[in-house]
């Protein structure tokens, strides 16, 4: 724009990366359909072709979203972390809060399915299900709760300007997340029931599986955060990305508490 703008709104330049990530998502959807079609029709070549499409789609999605993400990081570096316009900061905050709200509603559908099924079936868990022992989930709960504490610790360090503690505790949070995922896989390998062994297995794996995927996404966000902290991003006052990742992490934590209470403990 030729004249100086009299507002602080972010008006970015056109970008190819959003449509590239659309292409990735579209390819993955088509690949899924091809996989389903070739599975029942016994077409080995078709199945291979479907798998290739799935991988290409996933890579395209990661490329598009990743480049988009890099673009955002670059822009915030160019802007600097000393002075971030209030409207911009607010837009990011609102955006993240509403995104998490939509995720809450997504999980709500599965929790409601679980509650419905546990009321609908007179015997719950169903008599053919050997439920998992509580030890591993207890350890996992402790892990995630501590990770909630470590990320808060890191936040306090950031506000106080203690970069060393900040970096250390951010990394520790991500590591706790990955240990959680490892233990979750261990638990899956011990389970005496599968995704397709009736409603209990269906609800159990869908809930814990989607939660695990969110833990993975949150951990990746934390790793990116770690890299950015190492590069010296953020200031004591302005660190929206840190807060966004932390909010997401707390959300994942809260979902787990719900899971632990209703699926494992009660």
């Amino acid at each position: 724009m030729s004249h100086t703008q009299d507002h602080d709104f972010h008006v970015p330049k056109p970008s190819i990366w959003p449509p590239v990530s659309c292409l990735g998502a579209g390819l993955m959807a088509f690949a899924f359909v091809m996989m389903v079609a070739t599975k029942s029709a016994d077409m080995p070549w078709g199945a291979l072709y479907a798998q290739i499409t799935m991988v290409v789609g996933l890579l395209t999605l990661v490329l598009g979203a990743g480049k988009w993400w890099c673009m955002l990081i670059k822009e915030s570096r160019e802007r600097g972390y000393d002075k971030v316009p209030k409207v911009l900061d607010l837009a990011n905050r609102y955006g993240m809060v509403f995104f998490i709200a939509s995720e809450v509603m997504f999980f709500a559908a599965f929790f409601i399915a679980y509650f419905y099924a546990s009321t609908f079936n007179i015997v719950w868990p169903p008599s053919n299900i050997e439920v998992l022992s509580i030890e591993l989930p207890v350890i996992n709960t402790l892990l995630l709760l501590s990770s909630g504490a470590t990320i808060s610790w890191a936040h306090h360090a950031l506000i106080k300007g203690d970069r060393k503690t900040l970096v250390r505790y951010t990394l520790l949070t991500a590591v706790l997340g990955f240990i959680f995922l490892g233990l979750q896989m261990l638990e899956y390998s011990h389970a005496a029931f599968a995704f397709d062994s009736g409603i209990y297995g269906s609800a159990f794996y869908l809930l814990t599986g989607f939660h695990g995927f969110h833990v993975f996404v949150g951990s990746v966000m934390l790793l990116v955060l770690y890299k950015r902290l190492k590069k010296g991003d953020f200031s004591q006052k302005h660190h929206f990305y840190f807060e966004g990742a932390a909010w997401y992490w707390h959300f994942v934590d809260v979902v787990w508490i719900g899971l632990f209470l209703f699926v494992y403990a009660l």
Partner: peptide
Amino acid sequence: FGTSFFNMAGGGDPVL
């Protein structure tokens, strides 16, 4: 994937 959310045989319910 053979789940039973809406399948009576596996303890699910189409009404859900």
